[in-house]
Nucleic acid binder design. Structure first.
Lengths: 373, 373
DNA sequence: GCGTTTATAGAAAGCGTTTCCCCATCCGGA
DNA sequence: TCCGGATGGGGAAACGCTTTCTATAAACGC
């Protein structure tokens, strides 16, 4: 307590410090520090005494001081494109759970696709002394990244960062899930399949588009440029894109979207134009956000597990931060994707309704987890 | 640079410190500190010299050291119920923008309605030395809060915290918007209006229910207990609740939900039971999340602006943190709510279709912003 | 029995700031 | 000319911790 000490003006609380523990346990502060940090050179008997004292006085190490002296804050930075896109909160949640369980705190930032914001965000994170940053978006100034890499600052990218050594990358296997989606549609009898991309300056968006093109090629279907529309990964973008498709002389029978939000926008746009889904047109999303199964109709979509993504991100960061991490040398992490069939895909319009009975053809692909109803 | 200095083992980067600036500007570190913190007693000429040196050596103050010595971290804590509920990311976004613009960083946490998580979250925030916490959820151990209040730790609650002095409260005027919603439905001719609540241990959920009861009383409508169903503010909860309503001998003609996620669940549940909205039943949400206008049909809902909420929260926090803040004495902030009419509400089923033309009756309440299509 | 390791604890040196205290300088008044 | 009070800058002491270096005691080999 020591109320005699005339407190500094602004100081909030005279927290109990390592010195109080030391006094109580009748040891030096060095020993307390070692005991608390579980350093093996301290005698077990003494350590017990220290821990007892810690409990008695209610000691909590001061993170600021610890960070100041050790140069490590135990904070992980996580940068996402847009926190209001429901995929990201799910990711953030998983990431945070994992990080906290492993003794790290998380500092989150959302760029809104704005390079200026991104840069100031990274600066803020560095200033706060984060130990590493996972960048789950793009549109980053290459030279900032280069500078960080030179400092050997731990960075983790999704898909593919700049071509630089010493950064870690989570490679999402887009082809896998998108191929399943295209084959699912092709198997149903679709020939005219459109694709609504994300903002193409995002590598992840371009990668999804490329995977689509490749998969279409594999089943021998053409991709005319009028069926490749650039969106922006938002509902508004999905609406605009579907309006352009609707304006075409012939509406494609199916449309695959670069993410679920786009697909939701498409659903909404088709509602406005009184098209029915999946009767008039089949719609497939990407991400499998929680919301997808609650859409009307429930959305067939390619699942990219944010649990997988978060797990890999945390692991990759720790690999870069902790010198003797078991995976310190690993530079790439692979993230799988897979199709989840729900109700927004069906045989193309004009197909004999009798075929509607042949549902078994679909069940072959369907791998939906037991729905939560 | 000083490469001769044999660096500590783990140290990341020998950042440029206040000493480098002092050397360069040929002043003491005390002067640099004062200049950088814009303390008026430093000679303008000297200050200019210091700033020049700051630029030249690329000095960035070390936040950890600053926090350690000043006892203030310039971090605001923000605790929300569930980051995956889209209302909260919108709130987080606004909060963060405001905080950063005012020189604060934000530490976010999501409780998932779990008191244990909440408590550990608060502890983590305290350990990281946040200057204050805005608690936008409930289910908090009263004694933890009491302890914090005794320490004069700045806390901000929504609706009403525990009955304690010295905490700040954002009072949301639920009655306002909910009354508008009930009157809107009553004016359309609805007599049987059900309400799906949130988890009732949340004060905010109970407050919404009470506002509903009161508004119903005002228009002379009864609220039989079978029309008051407890949900949990999730889509799943909305589905379960609507199933119970559907199982009733007579389906109410309208249902008001305690939040938009519940309403989305209701929409989905009614899709499964092949009821049509709004023909068979009108649905009203609460929050006005961005997604609401993209539902099928677009959701009529009560808007609670997260911008208002965030603005008030940041202001209230700063009022508690900064001793000479202009609003230091203010203890309550008022947040308005209002109805936004879209397409999920209509005349009750069985009403003469001719009445369908009398749309002007609705437009009187409608105040939808220009839709973003 | 003496010198030499091997354990373990303590003393003390920082980490990069802010801020208190004091001293030099300057100005005005007597 | 001298003194008192401002004014503004520098020295140095914290802040709470980690870690190196040193000291002591015990264990050990010859």
């Amino acid at each position: 307590m020591s109320p005699s000490k005339k407190g500094r003006s602004n100081r909030r609380r005279a927290a109990v410090s390592i010195r109080d523990v030391a006094r109580r346990a009748r040891v030096s502060i060095a020993t307390v520090s070692r005991a608390v940090n579980r350093i093996s050179t301290v005698d077990p008997e003494l350590a017990k005494r220290v821990w007892k004292a810690v409990d008695e006085v209610g000691y909590v190490p001061n993170t600021q001081a610890r960070a100041l002296v050790s140069g490590r804050s135990r904070i992980l930075g996580l940068i996402v494109s847009e926190i209001t896109n429901p995929f990201f909160p799910e990711l953030v949640q998983e990431f945070e759970n994992l990080a906290v369980a492993q003794g790290y705190e998380v500092m989150i930032g959302s760029t809104s696709y704005d390079p200026v914001r991104t840069e100031s965000l990274i600066r803020r994170m560095l200033q706060r002394g984060v130990d590493g940053v996972a960048i789950m978006t793009f549109g980053i100034e290459e030279d900032l990244v280069t500078k960080l890499v030179e400092r050997e600052f731990p960075l983790v990218f999704v898909d593919a960062g700049p071509e630089l050594p010493n950064i870690r990358v989570l490679k999402v296997n887009y082809s896998e899930g998108i191929r399943e989606a295209v084959q699912h549609l092709a198997a149903l009898g679709h020939r005219q399949i459109a694709f609504i991309t994300g903002p193409l300056r995002l590598r992840s968006a371009a990668a999804r588009r490329d995977a689509f093109r490749k998969s279409m090629g594999e089943v021998g279907l053409p991709v005319p440029s009028r069926h490749l529309i650039e969106g922006n990964h938002t509902m508004e973008g999905g609406m605009t894109a579907i309006e352009r498709l609707v304006a075409l002389p012939e509406l494609p029978t199916a449309v695959l979207c670069s993410n679920d939000m786009t697909a939701i926008g498409v659903l909404h746009g088709l509602y406005e134009t009184t098209h029915k889904i999946p009767r008039d047109i089949s719609v497939v999303g990407f991400d499998d956000i929680h919301l997808a199964q609650f859409m009307l109709p429930p959305l067939t979509t390619v699942q990219m597990s944010c649990k997988d993504l978060a797990t890999a991100a945390v692991q990759a960061l720790r690999a870069g931060i902790e010198p003797d991490h078991p995976k310190a040398a690993q530079k790439e992490w692979l993230i799988p994707t897979r199709l989840v069939v729900r109700k927004s895909t069906e045989f193309p319009r004009g197909t004999l309704p009798a075929l509607g009975k042949a549902v078994s053809a679909r069940r072959g692909v369907a791998r939906e987890k037991s729905p939560s109803l």
